[in-house]
Design a protein around this nucleic acid. Structure first.
Lengths: 341, 341
DNA sequence: TTGTACGCGTTATCAG
DNA sequence: CTGATAACGCGTACAA
């Protein structure tokens, strides 16, 4: 069942059917009415592959996301979708699966859907300048920075100021009397978000003349780099075994903080009396937790909105756009509040 | 840049290029090598729209999901993806957005991608028998039941035994000495999952000769029917204002339970000493929470796996398949443990 | 083993 | 306002 069949049924040409289907102005309202009625009665389904093949432009944007199950990204996607729909653009989500080449897949999606722009959510693009050239529509890297723009391309990025945010929260831990501050860090290969949060930690310690101690650093395993509760739990167990004595922990995500707290409790530690715990992200969840968790709240809404603004700006002006770095906000809660040490 | 261009560059016909690209056997290994090299060097990107248009079959399955940000569904999707990929099928995710007709969209996706099957995750299909006929490939409704199969179609469903699960957990609350048990229920229009959990609650009370009291029932607002923390929080605040005196609460989702606990704490109630709180779903999160939350653990992994099994069975045999209902497991944790009332 | 030609279902262009 | 007809990019039967 194609528009050809509909055309026959209605005794009109196929282009007339096409016009009816696409709200084209050049059509007699009565014929349109008649065609649309026939369409509704029969079980015709337009074929988007054929449409996209023919179309040169589709007013569509896609977001390529890693770790679709991370609540932080999930929230982000909600906002992205809302903002893009608001501008009357179609919105697609593509889950990047490990193993597949995400840039190759992005290029295919662009061709397939005639995208006008693209958003990468998560992932990092440090050493992929040449491969990034495959992306021929404007794109924005969301929640990670882009050190350079591939030649002849339109690209930008929006991210939280991970370095300063991390430094700030660790500073806060120092200033509330902690000198032995452990960190649940990203994997050693992380050269973006996780790296910056690590650097912020180092900087804060340095500012307080606290020497860096390896045994207080626990890295994420390279085989499973999710910033998850489970990983936070395991890492804290590992850390506890080292018996290195710490009074505070900085987990680079709220989920990891939750996992860490569980491990600490199982080891008989009280939060915050025995160990202060701070997270990062500002998930709603951190506020609902008991004790409520001190965290750096990332401006999710702003990051998403700004990403969309920048993307549309590039689409409209065809000019590259400077990346934006947005501040996170320290929210102190019970998980780090101690009267004294 | 199309395969035509590649063909020219290599001085071969387009079908030869096509053969090289698709691992077709009838091709000289040397020519293939040469073509593939040229492809790698140029920035050719195959156009999937054109591919899908030609193809009659694509070994692909899609899942249509509502509320992509619900951690319960997020987990489910992970498993679904893994299981489908394991069978060497392509996997697509489609986020159903409010306002758009999900069945229409499903039909389009089927035509567009030449899907072999479809999975609906979330949502209900009670009074949509006729519209469901639009779906001409086998499909499985995941986490909700299907009361009938549209004529001439291949369909099935897999869900938790919501009714008995709900009854069981409320029974447990009764048996641990509670007689005034409040419920944070779904919206009044819910005729599937939420409805069944409500019925289970009623049944359990009846079995203990406890009369149903309207003031102990708090429904989800119809404008925002997410089983979320925020909604749980708001609902519990409303409930507390009624001053109807309850010693236990059954929230129909773990997230709502977390929200409820927060509201209770703000009102100075201790969990579980003053009020016992039980949830539903079995999110990992419920275990990490303090106090750990008593919940009915849905067999997420099994539901997802079974959905895929059934779907493939229908695809292969072209016969309809009976729906499956899987038991949830009561896990008692601290949030409901009281020495005495 | 290779190339030519056709058609997948649409939309865009043009002449009526 | 309407209807042929030519693409869109690719896979494939068929001929070579």
């Amino acid at each position: 069942m194609t528009i050809k069949d509909i055309a026959k049924k209605c005794g009109v040409g196929i282009s007339t059917v096409s016009r009816a289907l696409n709200d084209h102005p050049d059509i007699n309202p009565e014929t349109k009415e008649r065609i649309l009625k026939t369409v509704a009665e029969s079980d015709f389904v337009p074929n988007n592959s054929a449409r996209n093949l023919k179309r040169t432009d589709a007013q569509a944007i896609a977001v390529m996301v890693k770790e679709i199950d991370d609540p932080f990204f999930a929230t982000m996607m909600q906002v992205l979708e809302r903002e893009i729909r608001k501008r009357h653009y179609a919105f697609f989500i593509r889950h990047m699966t490990r193993g597949r080449d995400e840039l190759e897949e992005a290029a295919e999606l662009i061709a397939e859907k005639r995208l006008r722009g693209l958003i990468f959510l998560g992932g990092s693009f440090e050493n992929k300048m040449d491969r990034l050239k495959k992306i021929k529509v404007p794109f924005v890297v969301c929640t990670a920075s882009l050190t350079a723009v591939p030649e002849g391309r339109l690209a930008s990025w929006v991210a939280t100021d991970d370095y300063h945010a991390s430094r700030e929260i660790v500073n806060y831990l120092c200033e509330t009397g902690n000198r032995n501050i452990a960190i649940l860090a990203s994997d050693k290969n992380d050269s973006n978000v996780g790296y910056l949060r690590m650097k912020g930690y180092e900087k804060a310690l340095a500012e307080h003349q606290i020497p860096l101690r390896d045994e207080l650093i626990c890295y994420l395993d390279e085989t499973d780099t999710a910033y998850s509760m489970e990983n936070g739990y395991r890492m804290m167990q590992k850390l506890l075994k080292r018996k290195c004595g710490f009074t505070a922990v900085f987990a680079i995500s709220d989920l990891m903080a939750v996992g860490a707290i569980r491990a600490l409790r199982e080891a008989g530690k009280r939060i915050p009396q025995d160990v202060a715990v701070a997270g990062f992200d500002g998930l709603a969840f951190a506020e609902y937790f008991e004790p409520p968790i001190t965290t750096m709240v990332q401006p999710v809404e702003e990051i998403a909105k700004e990403s969309v603004v920048i993307l549309f700006q590039m689409i409209e002006t065809q000019k590259s756009c400077e990346g934006r770095i947005l501040p996170a906000k320290l929210v102190v809660r019970k998980s780090t509040e101690r009267g004294h040490i």
